[in-house]
C-alpha cells in the first residue's frame, strides 16, 4: 500500500473508531482536534498491543473494561496547581473585587481533569474570603480523572512547583497550610472541596449549567476542533450570568470563535474574558 493510501485508510479508521465509541458508549470525541487525537490513539494502540485502530475498535466494542483506560489516553490530563501564576494573580487583583459584590457565587471548572485547577481556585477563594459564599462545579468527561480530582492527592515531587506557582500568584499564606504529606504524596485539605460538586459532564454533548459567575476552562478547548470550540463557548455564554467571567489558557483565544462578540477581552494578556451585558448599561453588573 502506498503512503498516500495508508494515510487515507488511517483517516477512515479514525472516523469509524470515533463513531463506534459514540454509538456504543456515548462518549463523543468526533469534534476533537484530529492531529493530537491521532497521536494519542496511536500510543494507545501501541501500549494496548493493537496493530491498527480497527483492532482497537474491535476490543472497544466487545470489552467495555478497556474503556476507562482508553479515556485516559484520549483525554489529556496535564496540569499543575496555580499553573500560569499570572492568571491567578489577575483573578486576585482584578476579578475577585467584582465577585465580592455578589451575595453568592458559582464557579465552574470545566474539564477539571485531576483537580489541580479546582484546588487552586478553592485556595484562592479561601484566601480572599469568598469560599463560604461560593459553590464550585468541577466537571470532566473522564471518570478516572474525576475520582482523582475528588481525592486531591498529588505526588510529593510536584509540590515544589505548586508552591512556587502559588507564591508567584500572590498567595497570602503558605501552600503547606493546605496539604499534609505522607508516603510520598500530598493530600490536600478535604475541606477545600466541601463546597464542590464533582460531575461527569461533556462539553461536546451535555447541556448547560446555570448562572455561573466565573468559568475557568484552561487548556481544554485546544483539544477541540473549531466547530466544537464554538459549541463549548456557546455553552459558556449561556451558562454565565451577564458580566460573568471566562478564563482560558495562556495560548487560547476567542478570536477565531463564532461567539467572540458575546465577550469582551477584559484582561487580554491573561486571557480573561467577560460576557457582555444585553445592553451595555454601565450601571448594570
Amino acid at each position: 500500500m502506498t503512503q498516500e493510501a495508508a494515510a487515507r485508510t488511517g483517516d477512515i479508521e479514525l472516523r469509524l473508531f470515533l463513531e463506534a465509541m459514540y454509538s456504543q458508549y456515548h462518549y463523543d470525541f468526533r469534534g476533537y482536534s484530529r492531529a493530537s487525537l491521532k497521536r494519542r490513539l496511536a500510543l494507545a494502540c501501541q501500549r494496548l498491543g493493537c496493530s491498527t485502530l480497527s483492532a482497537l475498535q474491535e476490543r472497544l466494542l466487545h470489552d467495555d473494561r478497556i474503556l476507562p483506560q482508553l479515556l485516559d489516553y484520549m483525554t489529556v490530563q496535564v496540569s499543575d496547581m496555580f499553573r500560569d501564576p499570572a492568571y491567578f494573580r489577575a483573578l486576585r487583583q482584578h476579578i475577585i473585587p467584582h465577585l465580592k459584590t455578589y451575595p453568592s457565587l458559582k464557579v465552574w471548572v470545566a474539564g477539571c481533569s485531576s483537580g489541580e485547577e479546582l484546588y487552586s481556585l478553592a485556595i484562592l477563594f479561601r484566601e480572599e474570603g469568598l469560599e463560604e459564599k461560593t459553590m464550585f462545579y468541577a466537571t470532566d468527561v473522564n471518570g478516572n480523572a474525576l475520582a482523582r480530582a475528588e481525592a486531591g492527592v498529588y505526588a510529593l515531587e510536584r509540590v515544589a512547583l505548586f508552591t512556587k506557582n502559588h507564591r508567584l500568584s500572590g498567595g497570602s499564606g503558605s501552600l503547606s497550610d493546605y496539604y499534609h504529606a505522607a508516603y510520598g504524596a500530598a493530600r490536600f485539605d478535604q475541606t477545600l472541596r466541601r463546597r464542590t460538586v464533582f460531575s461527569d459532564h461533556s462539553l461536546a454533548s451535555d447541556s448547560v449549567f446555570g448562572e455561573m459567575h466565573l468559568i475557568s476552562c484552561r487548556n481544554v478547548l485546544i483539544y477541540f476542533d473549531r466547530p466544537l470550540q464554538d459549541t463549548a463557548v456557546g455553552l459558556f455564554r449561556d451558562a454565565l450570568v451577564r458580566k460573568g467571567f471566562l478564563g482560558m489558557g495562556a495560548r487560547e483565544t476567542l478570536r477565531f470563535n463564532a461567539h467572540a462578540k458575546a465577550f469582551t477581552e477584559i484582561l487580554p494578556q491573561e486571557r480573561i474574558y467577560q460576557k457582555r451585558g444585553e445592553t451595555e448599561d454601565p450601571c448594570a453588573r
Binding site: R34, A35, S36, R39, V78, R226, R251, E252
Partner: peptide, 21 residues
C-alpha cells in the same frame, strides 16, 4: 511553538496546540 506546548497542524491548515506529555 509556545514554550510548554506542542505545535501541530490540522487538516484545514490551522495550527493546534497541545499540552500532552
Amino acid at each position: 511553538a509556545p514554550p510548554d506546548y506542542h505545535l501541530l497542524v490540522e487538516d484545514d491548515r490551522r495550527l493546534s496546540l497541545s499540552n500532552e506529555e
